Simulated scan of single mutants.
Amino acid sequence: MWQAAMDWLLQCNAEPDNVLLHQAHARWLAADERHAAAWRKVQKVWMLSAGIDPLEPPTAHQVPAAPRMAARRRSWPRRALAASALAACVLLLVGRAPPADYSSTAGEHRQVRLSDGSHIELGSDSAIRVAFEPGARAVTLLKGQAFFEVSHDAARPFTVQAEDVKVTVTGTAFDVDLSRSAVSVAVQSGSVQVRDRRGELAVPALGAGDSLRVGLNQGPAQRSRVQLEQVAAWRQWQLLVNDRPLAEVIEQLRAYYPGVLLLQDRALGQRRITASLNLRSPGSALQLAIAPLGGQLTQWGPYITVIRERAAPPGKK
């Protein structure tokens, strides 16, 4: 959640007169109290670190003034100050991992064997909490991605909770991916039931080759078919992307990328991409993803990489 707040901070700071951007930011804040809480934390660190006034989104009735070239050219001292503030956000917020029984670090896949014989493979920068009782087996995916191979036990259903989405099985193999915008489930063998806490998600059981994407900010669930060898392709260090927004791809690469990735250009993030990316080389994968869409990378100190649209050559628009 803090990563999204940092993205908004960077974009709003870069375009203070963009009313549409600030209105979209206001909608994001209103969608979930956790969004507002993350924003307040990032704002506090930003102000304490750099002495910069908090960013206030304009109202719907405000019209941005015509941009002035002098105002657009941010001085290097201010850029350095902003970079220092963002670095402080990184140092204070990145390490705050939720309490977990098992976790993996960035760039690590971890194997976990549970007491019932079930096997879990954690993707990069992922975490789970386990609670087994005589009549139930429960795992909470706190962040990231995990592949489950569940030992059959009809008397003890196995559940995986990711935010508001619950997956229930007795014995099967499936993948669960928790991002900041959605929970995705893909089944390799057997079948699973997917429900949400509000009882609003009513879909038939997923079988082998079925996948389901449930948005965390409402919206209909998206069901599709996937080839079995493509389920949890990350286990072979592959990121397979089929006509997805670049912003989603960047989010998945964040788990493998050293440091912090910040997407400055929302329009760039909405451009769609189809690609096969090598997760063992996240830097090259990122370049391969953004270059065809007109993106470029800017390094802010040792921790922060900013993704923005490539500037047009001099004399061209």
Rank of each mutant, 00 (worst) to 15 (best):
I290G: 01
A155G: 01
R244S: 11
R235I: 09
V167W: 03
A85Y: 01
P98G: 12
G190M: 14
L21W: 14
P16C: 08
R197E: 11
L91H: 04
A80W: 04
R213C: 13
D153N: 02
A221T: 10
A97D: 15
D265R: 11
E309C: 04
T59G: 15
L240S: 08
L29T: 03
W2H: 08
S184T: 15
P67G: 06
V176E: 07
I120M: 03
A232N: 13
R198D: 12
A186N: 10
P16L: 11
S84T: 10
V192Q: 03
R72Q: 15
A88G: 00
P77I: 07
I273H: 09
L212K: 05
V63T: 15
R271K: 15
R223D: 04
V192Y: 03
V167M: 02
G190A: 14
Q188L: 15
Q222P: 08
D101L: 00
R272N: 11
Q236G: 13
E248L: 10
V63H: 14
G209V: 09
E163N: 08
T140N: 03
T170G: 09
F148C: 01
W76E: 12
G207R: 11
L178D: 10
M6G: 08
D164S: 11
W300S: 00
L91E: 06
R254E: 09
P77E: 02
A88R: 03
S84R: 11
D175N: 15
I307N: 05
D177L: 14
A131W: 01
I304M: 00
P77V: 07
A37R: 06
T140A: 05
A14V: 03
L216K: 03
Y102F: 12
N13F: 11
I273A: 06
D175R: 05
V194W: 01
R213D: 12
Q236A: 12
S284M: 12
R198S: 14
E248I: 08
P58A: 05
R78Y: 08
A182V: 09
Q11C: 11
V169R: 02
N278T: 08
F132R: 00
Q252H: 11
L268D: 02
P258T: 04
S104W: 03
L240T: 13
L55N: 06
Q188E: 15
S211D: 10
